[in-house]
């Protein structure tokens, strides 16, 4: 199950990354054109809910399974944030895009620091789980923020 989810996540990440890079390049060339078709709304909600459900199932999983599930959830949350970032970028003018890019760079740095600080079990097998949980929480907060700003720019 974990392997299947990993493979699906990897394919999805590659697709989103390619699309995102293409969009960023395209957006930098012209702000007047629309780059994302209006009726295209990629969603990872169900994938995320399923991984979450598997990780919290009644039968306790091994530490390796729990850590892998938490990494999968972190990857999906990050991909969702990437989508929202690109969608917001499209709605901004040139100056706003430049500002958002810098803001996102700084935020990414902060995320690493905060997630690293959440590790209590340094050197233990619990550490990846602690890191990923903090990573997910921080990413979800940012996701809400960018989605809200995207809605405000409609």
């Amino acid at each position: 199950m974990c392997m299947n989810l990993n493979a699906a996540n990897n394919s999805l990440r590659r697709f989103i990354l390619f699309t995102g890079v293409w969009l960023l390049v395209a957006c930098s060339q012209s702000q007047s054109e629309v780059w994302i078709p209006e009726n295209w709304h990629p969603s990872l909600e169900q994938v995320r809910e399923q991984i979450d459900s598997l990780a919290n199932q009644t039968a306790p999983a091994s530490q390796q399974q729990l850590s892998q599930s938490s990494q999968n959830m972190a990857d999906v949350a990050d991909a969702q944030l990437f989508i929202s970032y690109i969608q917001l970028m499209q709605r901004l003018d040139q100056q706003q895009r430049s500002d958002l890019f810098k803001e996102q760079q700084a935020w990414l740095e902060t995320r690493i620091q905060q997630a690293s600080a959440a590790i209590i079990s340094k050197g233990g097998s619990l550490a990846p789980l602690e890191y990923n949980d903090a990573f997910i929480e921080i990413t979800e907060a940012r996701l809400k923020d960018l989605q809200q700003r995207g809605d405000n720019h409609r």
Binding site: S62, Q64, Q71, A74, R111, I112, A127, Y131
Partner: peptide
């Protein structure tokens, strides 16, 4: 071994990728 991998003998071939490397980079475990 059971706690960690689910099996008594343990999983010597287990490979995971976690983002817990230096500065949040992903690494082989």
């Amino acid at each position: 071994n059971v706690f960690e991998s689910g099996s008594i003998e343990g999983n010597y071939a287990a490979i995971s990728i976690y983002a817990d490397g230096p500065h949040g980079v992903k690494q082989v475990t």
